[in-house]
Amino acid sequence: MTGYARSNGAVHGASFACEVKTVNGRGLDIRLRLAPGFDTLESDIRQLIGTTLTRGSVTLNLTVERQGAGGELYINRQALDTVLAALDELKGRVEAAPPSLDGILALRGVLEQRDSVLDEDGEALRAAILDAVSTALIDLTVARRQEGSRMSVVLLDRLLEIEALVARAEAHPARSREVILALLRQQVADLATDIKLSEDRLAQEALLLATKADIREELDRLTAHIAAARELIATGGAAGRRLDFLAQEFNREANTLCSKSNAVELTAIGLDLKAAIDQLREQVQNIE
């Protein structure tokens, strides 16, 4: 599900802003972009997000501006070693003037600036930032619930469509033993005029075909799944994964219905059912 929230704050001469946004995702994917010097907050922020959300691709940006607090420059020696190794490798292969020191230091990642965190105010700033993250997540949850309410209308429409198709399959005349018996008689007549089968034998064969083509069990399970899906939607909460599982079961029953079908019209209903189920599942995978 999609959503956006922002929270600001200021503590002891430092101001900060926390932005969090989510887009659709089947699992929970968390990406953090924290201000330099605040990497130690990553574990706590991930824990806050994990206890609030269960699905979606989450991006959280934390920016911090400090007034009157100095910072320090430091050399990222791992990045510097990588650059120097690359220069040594290219030295004998490319004719070029040797790079200057300021050119090397200007390469991204070699020389970095790290904000210093004041020991006296560090814990207060840390607590304020985590509070801001919690506030932003609450606002994000409200936005996602509002979207979920709108999505529930779409899901219920899809369930109505599936229910109507199940009712059409239920009422289709090709399911009756009498229709199957008439079709069997016609097939025998078309094969050869000299083949004579007793009415009892035809009735036995028709019963066997009707048993193989019986979709009563599939229709009952589809009806039960529709009721379960409606109950989950009405209950609310994080129902996305359970609805996704139900959508898979919907699809399983629709596949079996198509494989058992003994009429073109019934197969067409099954295919329409599969299309409606695919639309349902596509929407379900986007909700919490």
Rank of each mutant, 00 (worst) to 15 (best):
A128R: 06
I195E: 00
A239T: 13
F38S: 06
A238G: 05
I104N: 08
R31L: 09
Q283N: 06
C258D: 10
R150H: 14
G9H: 01
A189N: 10
E218A: 09
A192D: 15
I195M: 07
S100L: 12
I162D: 10
A79F: 03
L280M: 14
L125A: 02
E205F: 08
D102H: 11
D88V: 07
S198Q: 06
R6C: 08
G92Y: 08
V153R: 08
H172W: 08
A167H: 11
A192V: 00
L105I: 06
A136T: 03
T59R: 12
R126M: 03
A224K: 04
A167M: 07
L202I: 04
T223V: 03
G148V: 01
L118W: 01
L209N: 03
A35C: 04
D119P: 14
F250D: 07
H12R: 13
R230C: 02
R145F: 04
L28I: 01
R55V: 01
R221N: 06
V166C: 14
D115P: 01
A124L: 13
L208M: 14
L32G: 02
R126W: 06
I30P: 02
L197A: 05
I138S: 14
D200M: 11
A5H: 02
A128N: 08
Q146S: 14
T22C: 13
A192R: 15
R201M: 02
S15W: 00
K91H: 14
C258H: 09
V179F: 06
I45V: 12
V23N: 06
D139H: 12
L183H: 14
L48D: 03
G27L: 06
G122S: 15
S15N: 10
A96K: 09
G71P: 01
D29T: 08
E19H: 12
E120K: 10
R175Y: 04
D278Q: 10
G237N: 05
I287G: 07
G109V: 00
S149G: 12
L32Y: 03
F250Q: 09
L202G: 02
L181I: 00
A14Q: 13
N255C: 06
R93V: 13
G70Y: 01
A192S: 15
G3D: 09
A124R: 13
D220V: 15
D139T: 10
G27F: 13
Q248P: 10
T51V: 14
L53H: 00
E253H: 07
R31H: 15
E199A: 15
R242P: 03
N24E: 11
V166W: 03
A268K: 10
A85M: 05
E147S: 07
E170C: 12
L232H: 12
A69V: 15
D157L: 09
A254T: 06
D88A: 14
Q283L: 04
E218W: 06
M151Q: 13
A213H: 07
A79G: 02
R55N: 05
T256F: 11
R221E: 07
G237V: 08
L243C: 11
I45W: 05
